[in-house]
Design a protein around this nucleic acid. Structure first.
Lengths: 187, 187
DNA sequence: GTCTATATAGTGATAGAC
DNA sequence: GTCTATCACTATATAGAC
């Protein structure tokens, strides 16, 4: 992908994050880049094309990370820590793409089913790791769906919080967030 | 508010939750109610009117609940538990309104500043309760913004999860979710 | 309270000049 | 690679009949 196309997609990601895919027009995007809307089509084929690139590329990165972590021979709690850190890394890399993944995937047409399959597989793998942790007495036997939901909703919202803060030390996030989510709030 | 208007607003909330405020047209809403778009304007004055009612009414319920909990003379951890339960109660009452509050508030025009003030006050009160808990050694002294963000992002996403599930026992949620968020995942 | 008809403005996207 | 001009369509909202 050439650098002009990358610039368009990154700018779109930032606008989508702020106002949502549907509320951002091709004219808004062109304005933000200092060109006319018609010129965008020399680089991308449609508005949905942009969304597809953002959502599918990011989802594939999640899938790849999960497959690698799943295969490692380490305790469940260490796997969960690595999954959390993967979410943090991808959020820091492109917060706007994370927002599109979480908020705008329903506006995909062609690749919607492919995305939903990846997301389902990801959640199933995560659930299996949690179940192994419960079986080995590493993890509290709460309702497993509540546990999974709670973890994922914090991780999926990270982009909101990260984009709002000015100078966050990523190394601190990578240690404190797993600690908080795994050990809880109360002493 | 008469019952026809309530029906329109509840139907809109469900559509907004599924596809987002901007992607739902007045024709979509009218179709879902079995009438023509023009007929909607006999009950509401604009599309934004619907969003305003959903977001502002819900935000005011949060404000009211927080003010009451804040004034109680109980340990910080009990206050946090009550806040969590208030989120659960409002989510169960109207998941679509919770979605609008979290995802579509930026499309408010007239009442945007009023909403943002309420949200800021809410977060400040929550932060103060957490700080008191840390001072009294009830709560782990993690970065307080990370702790607050983690709690709020789970609570704000509850509507997604709740709407997906079929028959959840609310009484179970009201006990398990505070337990999980306060005590953590690891044994 | 709902309808048909319509005003007005914007939408994504294309054609073709430079 | 960007522009102007434009197309076909859709958006919110109003007027006025029934």
């Amino acid at each position: 992908m050439n650098s002009r196309k990358k610039e368009i997609i990154l700018t779109a990601a930032r606008l989508f994050q702020k106002r949502g895919y549907s509320a951002v027009t091709m004219r808004d995007l062109a304005d933000a880049l200092g060109i006319k809307a018609a010129s965008l089509y020399n680089h991308i084929s449609s508005k949905e094309d942009i969304l597809t690139i953002l959502v599918i590329e990011t989802a594939e990165k999640f899938t790849q990370g999960m497959n690698q972590i799943k295969a490692e021979n380490i305790p469940s709690s260490d796997k969960i820590k690595k999954i959390i850190q993967h979410h943090i890394d991808l959020t820091v890399e492109n917060p706007g793409a994370m927002a599109a993944l979480n908020n705008d995937w329903m506006h995909l047409e062609e690749k919607r089913a492919y995305f939903l399959k990846m997301r389902q597989d990801y959640e199933d793998n995560f659930r299996e790791i949690l179940q192994n942790g419960i079986n080995r007495d590493e993890i509290h036997p709460y309702d497993i769906d509540i546990t999974l939901f709670s973890l994922l909703s914090t991780l999926r919202a990270l982009h909101i919080w990260y984009s709002k803060k000015d100078h966050i030390d990523v190394a601190v996030l990578r240690e404190e967030i797993p600690e908080l989510l795994l050990r809880g709030i109360l002493k």
